[in-house]
């Protein structure tokens, strides 16, 4: 058995253990309203997957949250480039990013609800969670460029674009990938949380809110399962995309 097979088998065993524990706990509780069993949740999840409303709801939420995440990613990269080329800008922006990072997401949701209204809020909140993570990582990547390689590039009169492609991009890409990996989950969860509080139509957040309101615990679990699975799929797809863009470039690959 190869190492990969062993790893897969272990993962499946761990999953089976926790599902088993969940199943036993639900049997002990004995009330679907308090704790539905995994089978009930999966059955409901599959039922939801068979409806057009589910895909429309999921699609709209993904679009909403991804808009926020991608905008913030672009802004984070741009700000990192600017702050790494100006100490003053960095000094000005660092406390703002630290503040954004340490303020509870609920405070931002309520403030943004007052300032911005419901429509744009989930995208804004997702972006707000992603921005400091991307900014900090890309800044660290830019700062990590090897000064000896930059000197070599100066001696051989590399153009700006050649320095960017040959030195900056391969150095920053691993930082960017790791930022995206942690920021995606963060942004996705914050976006759904914002939807729960603002209940835009249609949205996963609204479905979760209504499941709670009407005590449909199985639905609540099924929608939560959808959020988790979507988080995994989105993360994989986007990271694969970044890897494809970066090719073999990247200090971590060397």
């Amino acid at each position: 058995m190869t190492g990969r097979h062993r790893k897969l088998l272990l993962s499946l065993a761990v999953l089976a253990f926790w599902l088993g524990l969940w199943f036993v706990a639900s049997k002990l509780v004995g009330q679907e309203l308090l704790l539905p069993s995994p089978l009930q949740v999966f059955r409901r999840f599959l039922q939801l997957c068979g409806t057009q409303t589910f895909w429309h709801t999921v699609g709209t939420s993904i679009l909403r949250v991804l808009t926020g995440i991608l905008s913030a990613t672009l802004l984070g990269v741009l700000l990192a480039v600017l702050t790494e080329s100006s100490a003053l800008l960095k000094a000005l922006l660092s406390p703002v990013m630290a503040l954004v990072k340490s303020t509870p997401v609920a405070s931002f949701i309520i403030l943004a609800l007052i300032w911005l209204g419901r429509g744009i809020l989930p995208a804004f909140i997702s972006g707000l969670m992603v921005l400091p993570v991307v900014w900090a990582s890309v800044s660290a990547g830019i700062a990590a460029q090897d000064p000896q390689l930059l000197e070599m590039a100066r001696v051989y009169a590399f153009s700006r674009s050649r320095v960017f492609r040959r030195i900056t991009l391969p150095t920053v890409l691993p930082y960017f990938r790791s930022a995206l990996s942690s920021a995606l989950g963060l942004g996705w969860k914050a976006g759904i949380a914002a939807e729960v509080l603002t209940v835009p139509q249609p949205s996963i957040g609204k479905m979760i809110f209504e499941s709670k309101l009407y005590l449909e615990t199985t639905d609540l679990f099924a929608w939560t399962l959808a959020v988790i699975l979507l988080s995994l799929v989105i993360e994989r797809v986007l990271l694969k995309l970044v890897r494809r863009i970066g090719g073999k470039g990247g200090a971590a690959d060397a």
Partner: peptide
């Protein structure tokens, strides 16, 4: 107009092969 240097350290691009490192100063 054109300088070249061999430093005490090789200063090669770690993410490029030896041939690509040499080619890096020839062209894009």
């Amino acid at each position: 107009k054109r300088n070249a240097a061999v430093f005490q350290e090789p200063r090669l691009l770690p993410w490029r092969t030896a041939a690509e490192n040499v080619n890096a100063v020839l062209s894009d």
